[in-house]
Design a binder for these strands. Sequence first.
RNA 1: GGUCUCGUAGUAUAACGGUUAGUACAUCGGGUUUUCAUCCCGACAACGCGAGUUCGACUCUCGCCGAGAUCACCA
Length: 479
Amino acid sequence: MEIVTRFAPSPTGYIHIGNVRSAIYPYLLAKQNNGKMILRIEDTDRARYVDGATELIEDTLEWLGLNWDEGPVVGGPHEPYFQSERKDIYIKWAKKLIEEGRAYADPTSPEQIEKYRKECTDKKIPFLYRNFRPENPPKWELGLPLRFKSEPKSYEWQDEVMGEMSSGPEVLDDIILIKKDGFPTYNFAHIVDDAEMGVTHVMRGVEYLSSTPNYLALYEAFGLERPKLVSLPHILAPQGNKKLGKRDGAKSVTEYRDDGVLAEAMLNYLACLGWNDGTEKEIYSKEELIKCFSVDRIQNSGARYDENKLYWYNGQWIRKIFDEKGAEALYTRTKDFWPESAKEADDDYKVKVFSIIYDRLKTLSDLRSMTDYFFKEPKIDLDMLVKNKFLKKMSESEIESLLKLVVRKLSDINKWDADSIQAALNELLNETKKKPAELFSLIRIAISFAPFSPALNLTLEVLGKETSLARLNAVASAI
RNA sequence: GGUCUCGUAGUAUAACGGUUAGUACAUCGGGUUUUCAUCCCGACAACGCGAGUUCGACUCUCGCCGAGAUCACCA
């Protein structure tokens, strides 16, 4: 049987770290089995609808490489994929229940329901609408809520992550199927859609675990086979024990993209947050995840979000891609992350800069703060030079004469490449009897005035002979 | 409050009825001709508590404690 999974978000805003995993796992499961993942937009709550949210969702999935096989944009045999456009289908299914006496119109006013609820609270008994079920409900028509007529009973089921589950009759109630505005509730719509679309695995957050018995009752009333149910534990906020949500400042997934996090790293980190394949492997490509993923190894407790580790993954991926695919391959993804000063610089030069600095990037956006001096003359800051911990014991005149020595030595280099530069630097060490820390700090600071930079010989090579010497001279005469 | 779920270092996790309880992030220390980073080496640090089953339990059972979810015309 073909495996069909779905990601069914409501368009109420961006996708953040806390909820994107319920797109990743369905994707992995589907792809692993040559099945399909459906994207379905659950937009039945008009009050919470946010304009543009659907595009945001699509954008996020596309960036992560979670391509859906059916849904908005790509279409498919079960169109439409927006619940708001499927009202006729829900009504059709609802009518089946009405005919069988399993659904009824609810004429009770919200105020009345509130009264019932209070009665129960006062008596300290749980409120169940079915205990107040009207005896002669009116014929259902649009404008009245439609309720399911539940039959209190026990259920047992298997959750692929949580294991054997069971519930008693007290959790079943007459849930609303169709709201008075004519839109179905989530509780009803997702069952109808999953059935119509042939979804075999329902993967969603654990918060739906409590309402599962009501869904089971619905499957039963329709004579539907139960899909496999997979509850995904929450991702917890860095502080406290609550699930990560926008209120905790959960960043949108695409915000990380804009900060220079690679999609590979994001996918890798998120997939491995609360899942592992039993080995000590940490770095997984999307293809490897598809191969190794298994639902029964999903952790059943919540996992805390750790941005730090995401950045570690990012560093790993930056180096991995660079090493395996080459500088150019990674460079093409850095376009938006260079400093203002690099605007006019040509690609060849930028690739060179990138090649010597890539392994110190945590995110691609670090390029902005780390490469400025490759593109424009650094502002000479003598304090930085004089107060450096290796240089402060030297007098200014000593620094000046050292710089002149350096200039003379480097001027003699015919072939300006990293090896020759290193050879010259080594000779200078011998001639001056200075420690590497002293001589190299001096040169490094004089040509960059940056808190840190790549290896000295590489920096000099990329900067070029002319620029390097000019900067050294400028500093020497500024002292 | 009812119902349900979860509980290995700060974090993410592994393993097993018998191990010095493994790995990674973080932290701290050290090494690689400067800095930052990489890389390498090292240190710190965990089975929530209490019973029971057992020759033996982190692992199985029960209780407790702690944490979370849910009880909407939201999803």
